[in-house]
Amino acid sequence: VITRYSSIGAIEEELVKADVIIGAVLVPGAEAPKLIKREHLKQMKPGSVLVDVAIDQGGCFETSHATTHEDPTYVVDDVVHYCVANMPGAAPRTSSEALNNATLPFGLALADKGLEALKQNPHLARGLNVLKGEITYPAVAEALDMPWSDPFGVWAKG
């Protein structure tokens, strides 16, 4: 496995050599950027594979479209695409337990402290999308072409 910092130059250097490329781009609250374009596929080895983990956010390859566990792959320009939406669904129990372990502390904090938990934990507050009818997450507001409100300002309004 070779990992590199994502840049257009690094991607273009590596895609000609790669057997498998796993794209796992996350821009919270926004669509994933398209890092591999259609014209790049012609430079890849025939039979190479693109795995688009970002497909639930629109995909990070220009030629990606969501597939299912029942029909998981398709081929574009001799490059196999695996773009299953909800990939963790292939291992539902394991993925549910992992998600529970990662999120339970936040759920408990919210249950114990309510909105005060958001004021006390900036990481938790960054997960807030809407408060009192106002969008409090910049990427969501941008995606919807609506105004954004600072959640602390919304709280201050009472």
Rank of each mutant, 00 (worst) to 15 (best):
P28Q: 09
A30D: 15
E31P: 00
P33K: 04
I36V: 11
I36C: 07
K37V: 10
E39T: 11
K42C: 03
Q43S: 13
G47L: 14
V49R: 10
V49A: 08
V51F: 09
V51H: 04
V51M: 08
V53F: 03
V53W: 01
A54K: 12
A54T: 06
I55H: 01
I55P: 01
G59M: 04
G59V: 02
E62G: 08
T63E: 11
S64W: 12
A66F: 04
T68Q: 07
H69C: 00
H69S: 01
V76L: 15
D77K: 04
D77G: 04
D78L: 12
V79C: 08
H81M: 01
Y82T: 09
C83I: 13
P92G: 05
R93M: 14
S96K: 08
S96W: 06
N101P: 00
N101R: 14
A102K: 13
L104G: 00
L104P: 08
P105H: 05
P105G: 02
L108R: 15
A109H: 12
A109E: 11
D112I: 02
G114T: 07
G114I: 13
L115K: 14
E116A: 05
E116L: 13
A117Q: 11
A117G: 05
K119A: 11
Q120D: 10
P122K: 10
H123E: 05
L124Y: 14
A125K: 15
A125N: 06
L128G: 02
N129A: 02
V130I: 13
L131N: 03
K132D: 12
K132T: 01
G133D: 07
I135N: 05
T136G: 02
T136A: 01
T136D: 01
Y137R: 11
P138A: 11
A139K: 04
A139M: 14
V140C: 01
A141F: 12
A141R: 03
E142H: 13
M146E: 15
P147Y: 07
P147D: 09
P147H: 07
D150K: 15
D150W: 11
P151A: 08
P151S: 05
P151K: 15
F152P: 00
G153D: 15
W155A: 03
A156I: 08
A156F: 08
A156Q: 15
A156G: 08
